[in-house]
Nucleic acid binder design. Sequence first.
RNA 1: GCCCGCUUAGCUCAAUGGAUAGAGCGCAUGGCUUCGGACCAUGAGGUUAGGGGUUCGAAUCCCUUAGCGGGCACCA
Length: 545
Amino acid sequence: MSSGVRGELEAAVLAAVRELGVKEPPDLELGRARNPNHGDYATPVAMKLARELRRPPPKIASDLAERLNLPPEVASIELAGPYLNFRLAEGWLQKLVGRVAADPDYGRSRMGGGERVQVEFASINPTGPIHIGHGRGVILGDALSRLLDFTGHQVQREYYVNDQNTQARRFGASVYARLHGLEPPEGGYTGEYVAELAEQARRDLPGIEELPEEEAELRLRGYAIDRMVDLIAATVSRLNVHYDEWFRESRLWDDGLPQKAIARLRETGQLQEREGATWFAPDVPGWEEDDEDRVVIRSNGEPTYFASDLGYLLSKFEERGFQRVIDVWGSDHHGYIPRMKSAMAALGLDPAALVVILNQMVNLKEGKMSKRQGRFVLLDELVDMVGADAVRFFYLVRSPDTMMEFDLDLAVSQSNENPVYYAQYAYARLANVDTFAAGREMPAQPELSLLREPWELALARQIAYWPEAVEEAARLLEPHRIPYFVHDLADSVHAFYQAGNRDAGYRVVVDDPELMRARLELCRAGRNTLRAALDLMGVSAPDRM
RNA sequence: GCCCGCUUAGCUCAAUGGAUAGAGCGCAUGGCUUCGGACCAUGAGGUUAGGGGUUCGAAUCCCUUAGCGGGCACCA
């Protein structure tokens, strides 16, 4: 049940449905009406009840309407065949404007009940700078975090730093090779930044060149990864993304968590020794069909990344007590989900507490992105070219499960018509009106019933939808819904403003102080809503542009 | 071969199983002597990839075909 107007309507309809003798009411599908002629909200529930009640839907609709107990100051009911339509009362909308104008935090919800949620996102191997393919996960994860925070969850943003896996070792070895003018190792890193790292290391780590290879590699690995983490943090910070925790894989082993997880699996008979290696063999329903056994400890005694991940689950759910963890992964990792879910169950954790959100890959128009072939665009370069707000919006509007083809030339040439400026301009206009009106004589308290023009009420309606738009997006974990709301709201703002260009009598700043005061209140309500929404997208709300 | 995701207007993308599938860009037409034109209004543009099915009702759920992307390691 959602809060706000919609929640009230749902509750009222539900009560009426029960009064008709329906024990298990179906989903009301009560939502905003598409066509304005149908009012503001509508439900087709009468059609769903036709079979059970053995009556024609229009009859059921009118029966429901008779029993519906709605405060008239909120909405009126209209019958349209099998549909029940609701229209928000103007008086209620006008009062709402006053409430929102006074509430800079309008739309914040307690829906989450303080649930402790971790969002782990964009945990890219810190062996190089991040490119535009990674940007998608960065923005998606951050937007999810903002959304959950706004809806009453305790959110922690985390980046998992792989500092001791195969890639990390190769990275360290590559820097070592570069430092000594040797050929990079098999599968090593060759970019120019590796050479720069080697030079920096020569300066920052005195005596590094004299150390024996093994020790030097270890130290160079740690050093290089620190530098890369700094670099990645700096890049995402330009996009208004700030992690609470950069959690290192090595810390898991220091704390003995993978060891603990392995011991637990061994005790419960969920590991097998075979071919010299230790395999994951969980006693979990569905495992046999869905996946094969996987190696936890290699035959050479080295643990796999999966061993770390087992410990990581304990860290998240037991050591740190998160009630839910949302992992944002690239879709190339989707095959890993069944194994992680099984690992949760095998460790005695609730698999449903681990939520994985996949985002599809980003491809360059010229073809697949490839570091090796030098075919990639750095996220930093993109921010340089089009700016942080446009970049965020660019990623945010797309649902994560459609693949993106990235055309850099197009992105740059279209950056000036990015819809984000449409919304920011609406905000700046509202701010400007307030400035313009400053110092004029007007009453302290607005008489909101003066807000009667269609475009004024349309703006108020759009403002009224904000809380449910937020909750919907949070419930579905779909931040891409927010920019669409923002666009609609900006639309209403511009239409409201434009009315004053057609006819000076419709401006905000008019001779009638009562009218001006009421319209200013609407501007402030619009501003608060717009700012909250832009905030949720991590996009700035400028007073001037 | 098996598994996952995607296919909606010329292009980029939306749309809790509900009424006439919507935006932006592009295209056409119209609108400022005074609150910022990065704006507004109107219009053209659709077999929701193809074919079956479920349902009172399908872009949405099921089956199937095709295309695109990804995965199927003692890599992560």
